[in-house]
Design a protein around this nucleic acid. Structure first.
Lengths: 205, 205, 205, 205
DNA sequence: GATGAATGAGCGTTCATTCAT
DNA sequence: AATGAATGAACGCTCATTCAT
C-alpha cells in the first residue's frame, strides 16, 4: 500500500473536508490502482472505494474515467518535470548537473514507484488527450535542451539530442523496471553507479 | 498498419490452406492490435476480424484470450531471444559482439516494430503465465551471461551484470520508443551510433 | 402469466420502494421462467426484463445465475417444507394429519403451480449447491419421520418409510403434473379423493 | 456407462456399417447424455463424439438437435408403451395385470434407468413436437383404458381414471426418482411391495 | 457419405456512467 | 454535494449448424 502522499501539491488548503481533498484522494487512488492493474483493468468503483468516496463522486471531480487518467498522468508527469527542472537549475558543471538529474529522478522513482510504473511501463495512447501529450513533449523538450547545452559546451557528444535523451531516459526506466520485476535490489550506490554509466553514454570523448 | 509478416516461421509449408495458417494469422492480428491498443482494450472479435476468421475460430486455436496473448508474447520474446543468441554466437571481440547484438535487436525492432512495442511498452503481469515468465527470465539470463563474459575478459566494467543489462536494454527500448512517438527518425547510422553510446555505458575504463 | 405473489413473505414492509422489492421481483420472475422453460433455456436478460429491471441489476442481488436459481429453489422448497410442517404439527389421528398434509401441499400447489413444476418436474443437479441439496434432504426427512410415526402407531404399513414417502409424494406430483398437461381439471373434491387414495397406499391393513 | 442397447429396435439390419447403425448409436448417445445433463446442457458435438461419428453426421440422420431429441423421446416413450401393452395384454384378473404392468415398467426402468430419467425427470415442453405429444397422449390413453376396464369390472374405484393413472404413474416415477437420488436402494421385493401399495391406491373397497 | 473446421448469434457477466434520493 | 443502486452496451466465450474437403 504505497501512499504517494505528496505527488500532487495541495496548495495549502485548510484541513477539513473541502472538495480538493477528495480530488487528491481520487488521484492517489487511481494512480495506485492504474499502476498495479493497468487503466483498462481498473473499475471506477474500485477507485472510488480506495479513495473512500462514493462512485458517483468520481464524476463530480472528473468528467470521465479518461479525464481522471489524464489528470493522474499529468500529475505524475509534472512531478517528473519538476524533479528534472530542479536538477537542471542547480549549479555545477554539466556532469554534476546530469548526475543531479539522475539522482533527482531516482529520488522521485524511489519515493513514488507507482508513478514511474504508471508513466513508463504502460501504454497510454488510448486515452491521453492533447494536453497530456503536450506535457510529455515539454518534458522531453526540457531534457533535450539540457543535452543541447552540454553539446554547446562541448561536453556532450554530437548526436541528435533527442536520441541521447531517449537512451538516457530509457536506461533510467530500464534500471527501475527490472528492479521492480525483482531481478535485483537497488541501493543508492547502484543507482549512482548507473548514473555514471549513463553519463558515459553521452559524454563527448 | 504494420504487417509483422515473418514473426513466426511458417516451416516451408506449400502454399494453400494448411491448418497452421489461421493460427499464424491470429498471432499476427493479435500482436498488431495488442501493440496498438493494449491487451485489455482489444476485443477478441476484433482480433478475429483482422485475421479474417470468425470469432469462434479463435477458440479452436487458443484456449482463451489469455492463452492467445501468452502465445503472442512467447513468439515475440523468442524472436528477440534468437536475435540475441545469434549475435552473441558470432565471433569477434566483446565490443564487436555487443554491437552485433545491438544491430541484431535493431534489425528485429525495425522489421517488427509492433513486437518491441508489445513486449516492452506494456504491462503484462495480469495475464502472463509461468512459461512466459520463465522465458523472459531466460532472455534476461542470456544477456546477463554475456555481460559476465565481458567482465571476466576485463572489458566490461564490474557492476551487477543485471543492472548493466537493464541499462543497455532500457536504452535500446527508449531509442525505439521515442522514435515510434515521432520524436525523431531512426536511420542505420543513428542506430549504430546509439549502439556505440550504449557500449560506452558498460565498457570498463 | 401466473403471479406467485406471496411465495416469499415480504415482512410487512410499508408500500414504497424498499430494497428487497427487486430481489423478490427477480425471484418471482426467475421462478416463472424457469418453470416455463427450464433453467438452461432461460437467459438472464429475460429474467431481468420480466422483473422490470436492467440486466446488470440481477448481479447486484445474486452472485450469478446459478445463485439466483438456488435462491429460487430454496424459496420454493421452504414453502413446501412449511406447508408440510404446518400440516404435521396439527392435531388429530394419523389419517387426518396425512390428509391435512395432502391438503396443505395441494393448497400450495394450487396457489403456486409454478413452484411445484419448478421443483419437481426438472432436473436440478447441474446447479444445485450443497445448501439446496441439504434442504431437499431435510424436507424428505421430515416426511420420512411422519411415516415412521405412523408405523410406530401401527397405522402405516411396515415398509421402508422412504419408499412410502416417495410413492405418496410421487403420486401427489403426478396428480398435479397431468392436470397441468391438461389431461383433466382438478377441483377440491378430486384432490381430496386423491389424498384418500394415497392414504390407502400406505395404510396398514 | 449404461448402454441402453436395445432401446430402439434395429429392424433386422445386417451387421456392417449401414446407416441405421449410426442412427441407433446417436439415439443411444443422445439419451445417455440428455438423461445425465439435460437437453439444454448437452452440446451436439458431444453426442456425436459419444456415438463415435463426426459432428456433421448428426445432421445427416436428424434435421436438428430438436429432431434428435424428439426421436429419443419417442423411442423411449415407445419402449414404455410396449412394456405397458405387453403387461395389459397378458391374462389374469385385474390385480394381476396391474402388478404385471408395474413389474413390466419396473423391468424397463431397471434395464434403462436413463430412459425413465429422461422421460419423467425432465421438462420437455420446449422442444417436443406434435407427434411426440400425441405419443404421450396415446400412452396415457392406453393406461386410462386399463383403468376404465377395471372400473367396469367393479374392481377399480370409481374416480376420474385419468387421475387414477396420474397417481399410479406418479408413484411409480417417485419410487425410481428417489432411488436414483440415493435415498434408498431398490430390490425386487421393494418394487413388488410398492406395486401392491399402488394397487391399494386404486382398488375399489 | 462422412467429416470436423469454421461460423456468428446468443449466452452469462462486467463496468462506465447516470440520477433519484 | 454526495451517494450507490440501476442501467445496458460490450465483453469473453459457447455451440447449433453449415459446407468444403
Amino acid at each position: 500500500m504505497s501512499s504517494n502522499a505528496d505527488l500532487v501539491e495541495s496548495p495549502s488548503a485548510p484541513s477539513s473536508s473541502t472538495p480538493p481533498e477528495k480530488r487528491e484522494a481520487l488521484l492517489r487512488a487511481a494512480l495506485d490502482l492504474f499502476a498495479e492493474r493497468t487503466y483498462g483493468a481498473t473499475p471506477v468503483p474500485d477507485i472510488a472505494a480506495r479513495a473512500s468516496v462514493g462512485t458517483g463522486t468520481v464524476y463530480r471531480h472528473f468528467e470521465s474515467k479518461e479525464a481522471l487518467a489524464n489528470a493522474v498522468f499529468r500529475s505524475c508527469k509534472n512531478a517528473m518535470h519538476e524533479a528534472l527542472r530542479d536538477a537542471l537549475a542547480a549549479g555545477g558543471n554539466e556532469r554534476d548537473r546530469f548526475l543531479g538529474m539522475w539522482q533527482g529522478l531516482s529520488a522521485m522513482a524511489t519515493a513514488n514507484p507507482t508513478a514511474l510504473r504508471f508513466l513508463e511501463l504502460q501504454h497510454h495512447e488510448g486515452y491521453l488527450d492533447e494536453e497530456s501529450r503536450n506535457l510529455s513533449d515539454s518534458v522531453f523538450a526540457t531534457a533535450v535542451a539540457f543535452m543541447r547545452d552540454g553539446q554547446n559546451a562541448g561536453v556532450v557528444r554530437m548526436a541528435n539530442p533527442g536520441i541521447l535523451i531517449a537512451l538516457v531516459f530509457g536506461a533510467f526506466v530500464g534500471l527501475f523496471k527490472e528492479a521492480y520485476l525483482g531481478r535485483y535490489t537497488l541501493d543508492d550506490a547502484s543507482i549512482q553507479g548507473a548514473g555514471e554509466s549513463a553519463w558515459q553514454m553521452i559524454v563527448s570523448r
